[in-house]
Design a protein around this nucleic acid. Structure first.
Lengths: 242, 242
DNA sequence: TCAATTTTCTATCAGTTGATATAATTTAGT
DNA sequence: ACTAAATTATATCAACTGATAGAAAATTGA
């Protein structure tokens, strides 16, 4: 049923390499309300399916279908699969970053003081770490955290954006606080490594979810168990800085 | 150039579902030397490419090509892509498990004693943890650790085998030691969570490799920097148990 | 040497993928 | 209402995917 005509058509390569993100030719002037709506639906469906299946296995058809729009709409608004993936990353990133900003500001102003006690510094660290941990484990649709975790494992282009906007910011904050606690040089390897380990423990909660549950024989995280988890992780962090 | 004949052929579905592993019909009696050789080359190529690209993006053609054999050889020896992937996991797993076994035996005999000091218990923990960390960071071809990390992120069927054989074993060892150190109930949530966090820190070295390097501004892990990393990670673990 | 078995290769299959051309439809500004 | 731009939908495309059929070649044991 395919290739009905005997004369072989000229083989066209895709206009742009499959891997490289394409510049969407969105409107310059006014935006149509309807267009913004389907754009948004594609974003939501993309986040869900990328999180469920990972980048490769989430087909553009499945995404378009879940969004309730036709396939070319995806190309139209995001230039292609990779463009959509990147857009999803930026969408999530912007929100999380906004929620991280108040803590960041508080840290910077507080660190201006010279007379901070160890307890105060620990409390500051906790104020940064705890909401992040909570957000990873429960807050926001589950697909967000899963999307996050997938992107990290898959080393996508989206990962760079996520790291810069969130991971890097969080890491910088933690490094500044830890540097004060440990008293050493703020940019030295000691401080950096310990900061990475701490931040890593947070993301661990999501990544090693199945491992943890299996090791504990728990069916799933309910509210109380999550509380236990947070408590134990935090105690470990605090005492490792003693 | 395809579908030359006008009469449409009967559409056959694959004999077995694409997802399910197929039973390889290997020889019963004697094994041909040549066959074992290409089988081995397929395993090596599979590990490399699965590690480099992940399960989805590593095509059977690319694997066969790198192995220097023809495509059907993969089906012949492993029954399909999934079969090869599982075989790769088992191949790596068997080796790592063998290298983990001596430490495991040592732990079990040592834990039989009742008069262990905290220092002795910590030393025991280090004896288990350090080789594993070393192995993840440098030892064996890099592709092994990468294959390992990918399987975890992708939640493949291979992950179950790996977890049972290695992750689970290591976790059990660490839990036993930590239980003694903390003095609490050996199977309680406290012990389990802290064990998971510790083991997670080890695998973090591989998974968050790029993040660590970026945060530190290092180009790569050389010998000395690896030493620093091990030292800092261990100090964090030890003092978190204080 | 010769038959039986094991192993390899060529050619092709049917399905899926991301992407595009093109036309129809809707929207906004006038 | 009319036009131009924006948006959506249909029908394909070419490449790639894992897998198979079937014959050829190589290896073994007699």
């Amino acid at each position: 049923m395919r290739n009905r005509n005997a004369a072989p058509r000229k083989r066209r390569r895709p206009a742009q390499g499959a891997g490289s993100p394409r510049r969407p030719r969105r409107r310059e002037g006014g935006g149509y309300a309807r267009g913004e709506h389907t754009r948004r639906r594609l974003l939501d469906a993309g986040i869900e399916l990328f999180a469920e299946l990972g980048y490769e296995r989430a087909s553009t058809r499945a995404i378009a279908h879940r969004a309730g729009v036709s396939l070319p709409a995806l190309q139209y608004y995001f230039g292609g699969k990779e463009g959509l993936h990147r857009a999803c990353a930026e969408y999530i990133t912007a929100d999380v970053r906004a929620r991280l900003e108040p803590a960041a500001k508080r840290v910077r102003t507080t660190l201006g003081r010279d007379d901070l006690t160890r307890a105060e510094l620990l409390e500051l660290l906790r104020a940064v770490v705890e909401p992040f941990l909570e957000g990873l484990a429960t807050e926001r649709p589950e697909s967000w955290a899963l999307f996050f975790a997938r992107a990290q494992g898959e080393q996508n282009a989206a990962f760079d954006a996520i790291f810069q906007q969130i991971g890097g910011r969080l890491l910088t904050l933690v490094m500044e606080i830890i540097g004060r606690i440990l008293g050493g040089p703020a940019a030295g390897p000691e401080v950096a490594i310990r900061a990475v380990v701490i931040v890593g423990q947070l993301t661990l909660v999501r990544r090693a979810r199945s491992v943890i549950l299996r090791a504990l024989g728990w069916p799933d995280f309910d509210g109380e168990r999550l509380q236990t988890l947070k408590e134990v992780v935090w105690r470990g962090i605090a005492s490792s800085l003693g």
